[in-house]
Design a protein around this nucleic acid. Structure first.
Lengths: 251, 251
DNA sequence: CGGATTTTTGACCAATGTCAAGACCGGTGG
DNA sequence: CCACCGGTCTTGACATTGGTCAAAAATCCG
């Protein structure tokens, strides 16, 4: 499986192999808990039981919706998820994009209801973790509690990233570099990105106009920093692009 | 104790009474755990032991600094704390303001080092919670774990608030209303604010220029929405101000 | 092929930032 | 008590970035 671009290249999707009970999902949100650190087999089996494998959301389908009672968090297994809220006038506000291995729904713990929609951008599979069950388990397995704390803490930092008053160039550079890094964490090349989201979504997420995203990508390409082919972006000069993104990434 | 304004009014500071072992700090971050919900006395005593009461930071003094190894989170007891990061060129970026009862340092769990400075804006007292100890305790006391999850989750939402592409008017209205609400949660009037932070800090936090903050406050006053007297702000028409802030506050 | 959607491009505009100057305010010392 | 000083705050004039509007081009998809 993969994604065939308009140039005929094949970009592999970060797909998760199912794994057995010991290995569990190799790129799963809790993979590090289950594999690297010696979590006892019983706890691992419990985590495995607790998980509900939900699959085959099609583009545009919602995993959860604003206002639904909070009951579970989701780990993306395949595809890309965006979270967004829609205000009274119907304007959309994109909050984030989630790649395989990342957790969606952490921001719903506090309000006890999902404060946003989670929408599949392509074909998506997720793992559903009942939160009460996960919380209970994590009192018995410190490694899991620790992992939850870390994920939550990380999201606070990420949310603050965008908040600065950065230029359009800085935002886009940081977006591309950041995406590349996240792919690289899952073992995919950091310089050959396939964007699952539209320009409009990117623009919305970066608080820019879609036209601005277009123009900046164009200019980056003219400057030889990247090569754009529709939704495929190759980062030609990662170092220079990073230099642009530095004010955001390297606080 | 209180704050005497240039008009001679006295604005009470939200000061925490020490409380006994049962009541603990009435406005403390974990107050709800310790009081409302029936946490057993032993656990409460343990929490009480774990806490280190650190006091008397003067304006400008740091509670922790960027890059220091993460070891504890802090609950504000008295005064106001700002968190900020300073980039390579020395430009400041204000991340947040913390009132009594609020937790500082949650964003440091993941990187395992404080990603920002925490600075006292006035006379500040805090409670220091060793994080490893707190995490351990929270495996035994589900209420505490729950409270930590909720606080972390809440911060994710808050961080995202600012990130929208809102107008200067919307930002300032939301800032004032939000501050009022947080004071109200601690039992202080939501309509008579004393700002512990400078215009520059507010501007920086809202990603505006200090001049813009000045101008908008001026205009709000001319429109009769608020009354400004230096760092004292009275909200004259909360409903109308909220209407301005609605796009941000009522997602 | 044809209609719909997304993306790109161009021309213009407005909100907010920047720069500069002056007002205010509180603290200090004569 | 008053004058001075430093920092904060306000106000005005002007510049700039990115948004808006409109239309063309490209892409998708049946």
């Amino acid at each position: 499986m993969g994604y065939v671009t308009s140039h005929g290249r094949v970009i592999p999707n970060p797909i998760v192999d199912d794994g057995d009970e010991q290995a569990f999902c190799s790129t799963c949100a809790f993979g590090s808990v289950c594999t690297a650190r010696g979590v006892d087999k019983i706890a691992l089996r419990e985590l495995h039981c607790l998980v509900e494998h939900v699959g085959n959301y099609r583009p545009g389908e919602a995993i959860f919706r604003t206002g639904e009672r909070f009951g579970a968090i989701y780990a993306v297994r395949q595809g890309t998820v965006k979270t967004r809220l829609v205000d009274i006038e119907g304007r959309e506000l994109v909050l984030g994009f989630y790649l395989p291995g990342e957790l969606v729904g952490l921001n719903a713990i506090h309000p006890e209801a999902y404060p946003c929609d989670a929408v599949a951008l392509d074909t998506v599979e997720v793992c559903r973790f009942s939160f009460p069950a996960l919380a209970t388990l994590s009192t018995r397995v410190p490694g899991i509690q620790q992992e939850l704390f870390r994920r939550l803490s990380k999201d606070i930092g990420n949310a603050a990233l965008l908040a600065g008053d950065y230029s359009a160039d800085e935002r886009l550079a940081a977006f591309l570099i950041g995406l590349g890094r996240r792919y690289a964490e899952r073992g995919f090349p950091a310089e050959a990105l396939h964007l699952a989201m539209s320009r409009g979504d990117i623009a919305n997420y970066l608080r820019l106009a879609a036209e601005t995203v277009s123009r900046v990508l164009r200019r980056f390409q003219d400057q030889g920093l990247i090569r754009v082919d529709g939704r495929d972006v190759a980062i030609a000069r990662p170092a220079e692009l990073f230099e642009l993104a530095r004010p955001i990434l390297q606080r």
